[in-house]
Design a protein around this nucleic acid. Structure first.
Lengths: 197, 197
DNA sequence: TTATAGAGTGAACGAACGTTCACTGTCAAG
DNA sequence: CTTGACAGTGAACGTTCGTTCACTCTATAA
């Protein structure tokens, strides 16, 4: 049997398992895999899972159960726009990852805010975009922060000038803000997401 | 006992379960919940889970096992930037969601491409950003597409003019492209993500 | 043709699973 | 003081789990 056919059948089974995970929100049991792939013996699944584990396609916990790992990552990471798309033959070589894992460092401290206003438009943050904001991290010079200054919430670059702090918009039609009395930094913008359709 | 205290203890247990999920990649069993919360009876967990299920905090499959649902969503959705942040008291009221579910319609057909070049910078897509591209969907007028035109891959707006098609950049320093012989649409840009830190 | 490795079958095993039952405190309302 | 609701205990249940063993079938290699 040629290698490519064998590999095709294997990939189809991996896709079946991944589809189960995305449909049900948990990994299948061995019996469920047997049912889906048409196997009539759990031992066939057992050997299949061991092979996939050796290939680093699947992971298991200490009790032998499957856990969601790279197979659960929904999106495949390719190169650059110039590189275009790979052919189906080389598609299996690309890495997959989860946007959650990619963009979120600390789930408990991270919030999603919708952007209104165009004060950061020259930084590529447009009205209607969403920003991921992480609480409780120390803002560094040049970070984009969510701040409450003089009673109003805004999103700006933070620039430290000597002992003072200036909030700088990314839009030449707005002026930098020098907080008069109070300045509360609610969080640091760690990512921007924009959904088209 | 005041309601708020009861609610605090309950929330702490929900957090414990969610933390297990994010740490291990699967939902805990009843025994594991008992161990984590200090309970010595699985039945106490059984009643707890039933209560949380009635509150729509947890979900279970047909075999009684916990499945990852809203508790697994890593990020909390708040209002707008102007609204600022809610107080910890009202924090429990916000919705949580997963960026994967939010941005990805069809996991199998969606890829992540890194942007190089500034031809879409006026649309808020900067070099170094990543775009989610979905294959196999029909591009509508005004969509941003990844296209191979005359042997090169580019990202542009697609405008349909009568019978022809024009690829329009979002940067006044570049010219629209009228494909001479070949035009292959590889996919439609469904979302943009930018990671700051 | 014979040997061999790979993939699947089918039955059995102990462990872990969710579930149920009867029971024990504890605290607040009557 | 009594009662009832609530949270948790501890043991038992039937089921499902992953695992193991012995075996069959088939296709390739010697």
């Amino acid at each position: 049997m040629p290698v490519s056919e064998k590999s095709d059948a294997l990939r189809e089974r991996i896709r079946t398992i991944a589809a189960f995970y995305h449909r049900k929100g948990r990994m299948p049991s061995f019996s469920e895999i047997a049912e889906m792939t048409g196997m009539r013996s759990k031992n066939a699944v057992y050997k299949l899972v061991n092979r996939l584990e050796r290939m680093k396609v699947l992971e298991r916990d200490e009790k032998g159960r499957l856990i969601a790992s790279s197979i659960a990552a929904p999106v495949k990471l390719l190169g650059t726009v110039e590189a275009g798309f790979p052919s189906p033959a080389e598609e299996e070589l690309v890495d997959t990852l989860s946007l959650d894992d990619l963009l979120i460092n600390n789930p408990d401290a991270t919030f999603l805010l919708k952007v209104s206003g165009d004060s950061m438009s020259e930084a590529g943050i447009l009205p209607g975009d969403m920003v991921l904001v992480e609480r409780g991290v120390e803002p560094k010079n040049g970070d984009i922060v969510i701040a409450e200054v003089d009673g109003e919430w805004t999103m700006k670059y933070i620039k430290k000038r000597g002992e003072g702090v200036v909030l700088v918009p990314a839009n030449s039609r707005y002026q930098p803000i020098r907080p008069k009395k109070e300045l509360t930094i609610a969080g640091v913008v760690t990512a921007v997401v924009r959904k088209y359709r």
